[in-house]
Design a protein around this nucleic acid. Structure first.
Lengths: 222, 222
DNA sequence: ACGGAACCGTAACGTACGGTACTGTTCCGA
DNA sequence: TCGGAACAGTACCGTACGTTACGGTTCCGT
């Protein structure tokens, strides 16, 4: 979500401060939960006092890190040019592949683990931030494509949100929960492309208008 | 998974010890992460020394709790009697509804959060235990039904595992990650039934043999 | 009845960590 | 050149919690 507060904070950060957030991300990925203020200060070569001056407290530092990382993922503006069945399928595949790359990246895994841990306690809103910039952000980005497909007579659904949730399930399946729980699941680039194409074709089999779903895609669904 | 070690440990626990594990589950659900040994001892009306004597250390206590809870979910043996299109659909719906109930229950949410937090550190294997008794256990339980459906000529797929993963995605969609991240998503009984039916029909639309997929189900897919 | 094992309640210890205070150094503008 | 702001480095404080130790009590077998 293009939350103004998010952007404002991101803009206000100096390169030195961004380097600190990089250190936080690095520690999160490598050390898991040993994310102490002292470790951050050591890694970023700054003093703990500076950390507290810049970010207030530990939660402020984590929040800034999550928001900054989220702002980096916000790339990829799939422009809706002339839309036909093939370009729609292609856009869906690009969305799915991009999403799979994100959720299988070590950074995303570490970030979601941290946010889920924090969601257990009531204080702080890391879970909400991750949700807004992950699940809901991609939903908003995909919606225009779905509605354009419907207006072009290529897709058939009542509610874009419901349709998106089916797409989400077909793409993600069990990948995210398995990775979060520590399963040694490895997704190579070709696997991501293959899974993305399969998910897109399955989605089209469910929501594509029959006349636009070539029979040759059917085998890919299995 | 019917891991012998799991069962052996479950059998060996006295009612008094199971009451302690109940206290742990209760604290996990209510207090989130404030799961201290002192709090467990207070709630279970036992001494901390007894906790350490019975379970070794904190990780042992948590592991025993997870394994015990997992053993309780292992219910529901969908017997494969004469299988026709309707009974297959019904069994799929029962699986989906049961699964949705489990993952949306406070206990499951708290348990998965704990396991994910632990998966961040390398020590202990709570994540693996939850995976084995959650994701993979239900996969093993559903596989016979899928293969029976294929043998009966009702389903069409190459790999049962791949087919199951699609089913998993269609059922779970974004529910689990949203709940884990603290989203205030509420699933009523009727919503679970409706979502389960929709997921089953979508799965049949993808993997059911055409002659067995009545046209009247199509509207439910949207 | 007696002895010992199991167990409760609690105090105590060690450690890890969030947060604060202080000192010395660097750097920049006047 | 001078003065002060910004910051690194470190010592320090308070607290929370895992773990251990110990005195007192209950319960069970003999």
């Amino acid at each position: 979500m293009a939350d103004p507060a998010t952007d404002r904070q991101a803009e206000a950060l100096t390169p030195r401060q961004l380097a600190v957030l990089d250190a936080v991300l690095g520690l999160m990925v490598e050390k898991g939960d040993q994310l102490t203020m002292a470790a951050v200060a050591r890694r970023a070569s700054c003093s703990k006092e500076t950390l507290y001056k810049w970010f207030g407290d530990r939660d402020g530092l984590l929040t800034a890190t999550v928001q900054w990382q989220a702002s980096k993922v916000r790339a990829g503006n799939y422009d809706r040019q002339k839309l036909d069945a093939l370009s729609l399928r292609d856009s869906l595949i690009r969305f799915a592949a991009n999403w799979l790359e994100v959720i299988s990246s070590p950074t995303s895994i570490a970030l979601n683990r941290l946010a889920i841990s924090h969601a257990a306690t009531r204080e702080s809103n890391l879970g909400g931030i991750v949700l807004a910039n992950g699940r809901f952000a991609i939903g908003e980005r995909l919606r225009p494509l779905l509605e354009a497909g419907r207006e072009a007579g290529l897709l058939d659904f009542d509610d874009p949100e419901t349709a998106f949730r089916s797409f989400f399930g077909l793409v993600g399946r069990d990948v995210q929960i398995r990775l979060l729980l520590g399963d040694a699941l490895k997704l190579s680039g070709v696997e991501i492309e293959r899974d993305a194409a399969r998910a897109a074709d399955q989605f089209l089999a469910l929501h594509g208008r029959a006349e636009h779903v070539p029979q040759k895609w059917r085998p890919l669904l299995r």
